[in-house]
Design a protein around this nucleic acid. Structure first.
Lengths: 258, 258
DNA sequence: CGCGTGGTTGAGTCATCTCAATTACTGTGG
DNA sequence: CCACAGTAATTGAGATGACTCAACCACGCG
């Protein structure tokens, strides 16, 4: 409910409805799973605190991390619609996630379409990020891939006030980074060293400091438009021609975040 | 409307409503785009005939193909919710796609929640496929990656009656395959030759014949569960524990395809 | 103070890429 | 019906990015 609570996008009553529907939030320790591959639907989850990842395991033990989830992100919807989950979600830091049971969720969706729209919106953004990751995995060399990930996390964490200027929490081990960008640990290590040597970043303990944002972005070929930061979809920055469609209007309404 | 029309999942009236909402279907020649990166929302599209791909271009001219779209698949929704599209959709063969304007779509969603559920369902399956592609891109070696793609297309095309036993249409140039699996054309070529030499496939003209399905699947590490073939979500084949949630019930209802 | 996890380093190997031709198709106009 | 153009597939050869294996180091915690 994090982002939901932050903006007055849903009507008071809607916010209250959501609050009522939430179960006692679930707490997770590091490496604990909130959603297990193949499991039955648990409901719709919203990250309240902490960082998690979606992942898939292969038979040979390899793991692909599909996404990093940060406060405000939702997950678990696919399991509801498809009856089981094709991937897992695990905590990378101690976490707190809110859960809405499928039944309660249904009730919410029926009584207020805006909530449905908000969910669609969140889903579409996660999809957009996934597409960018696919593009990285398929087309970008190791160095760019890692730069791109750093850029993305910087922006996303800043969006939810988890970044302090150029400093951001960085709880990702090199093994995790490797599984996310499809590179071996050794190569991740060497690439990070290169970034340090070039004076682009400082990475110590679990905080990342970005020293040269411009150069980092250029090295990554990073263009944040896929993150849809502008509050209103269609964006205020980009000239928005008259869109007279209702659904779009609804989307604009609820867009300022879930 | 393809799959929609095939199953009596939506009520008669709902089907009629949808039919009424559809614009004159759009025809596309090869390489023509239905959705352009950065473009304004056009509406919700449903592939009626032909094969298309989602893709993203990078500044250096490289292209990542994000998905292959086959009859029954929808696209264009993200542009509606986000106000513009972060990726393009282009025809790989001559195509026909039905369009529902954002306004009409909204109307449909309001008057019949089942249609919304059907859209969610389709979206969730496309997401699942995308996750499998990510996993391929990040973790599987070239040979497995290509085998996996062949397996997937065989199943998906068979599902919409486009495969004739072990023979399926294969309008994908090696360049297209390369852009989909993140490999160079040369390497795609050599890998396909290997598959031929091993007696797994015949690939001539624009049809692919699978000679040894078992071995192909094993080579790919292919497990079709991510395609959610079972008609009902949660599947009839897999023991379905009582799910008393309304949304899930609705999903089951509308699941047999959009 | 020792163990365990995570990070670092070196060295050799291999998968995949790029470059650069050459060959095979397909459709078109003469 | 054939010559030609343009696209797609194939082949060879050399370069290299990324991997694996195998140590070794550093820090945090009990």
């Amino acid at each position: 409910m994090y982002r939901l609570a932050q903006t007055g996008l849903l009507a008071e009553t809607e916010l209250q409805d959501v609050a009522r529907a939430v179960r006692a939030p679930q707490r997770l320790a590091i490496d604990e799973s909130s959603l297990v591959e193949g499991s039955r639907p648990l409901g719709c989850m919203v990250v309240q605190d902490g960082l998690l990842c979606r992942y898939k395991m292969l038979a040979n033990g390899r793991r692909q991390i599909l996404a990093f989830l940060i406060p405000g992100d939702t997950f678990g919807l696919s399991a509801i619609f498809l009856g089981r989950s094709d991937h897992g979600v695990a905590a990378l830091t101690p976490c707190q996630v809110a859960t809405i049971s499928p039944a309660k969720l249904h009730g919410l969706l029926v009584q207020s379409p805006n909530i449905g729209t908000a969910l669609w919106h969140d889903m579409m953004i996660q999809d957009s990020i996934a597409r960018e990751w696919m593009t990285s995995l398929g087309q970008r060399p190791a160095y760019e891939r890692i730069c791109h990930l750093l850029c993305e996390m910087r922006i996303r964490l800043a969006e939810v006030s988890l970044a302090d200027g150029d400093r951001l929490p960085w709880p990702f081990s090199q093994a995790v980074i490797g599984d996310a960008v499809g590179l071996s640990i050794v190569h991740v290590n060497r690439t990070l060293q290169r970034l340090r040597a070039e004076g682009l970043i400082i990475l110590r303990g679990s905080t990342l400091t970005i020293l040269d944002w411009d150069r980092l972005q250029r090295s990554a070929g990073f263009n944040p438009s896929y993150l849809y930061l502008g509050r209103a979809p269609g964006g205020v920055e980009s000239p928005l021609p008259a869109v007279h469609s209702e659904p779009n209007a609804a989307a604009r309404l609820a867009s300022k975040q879930l």
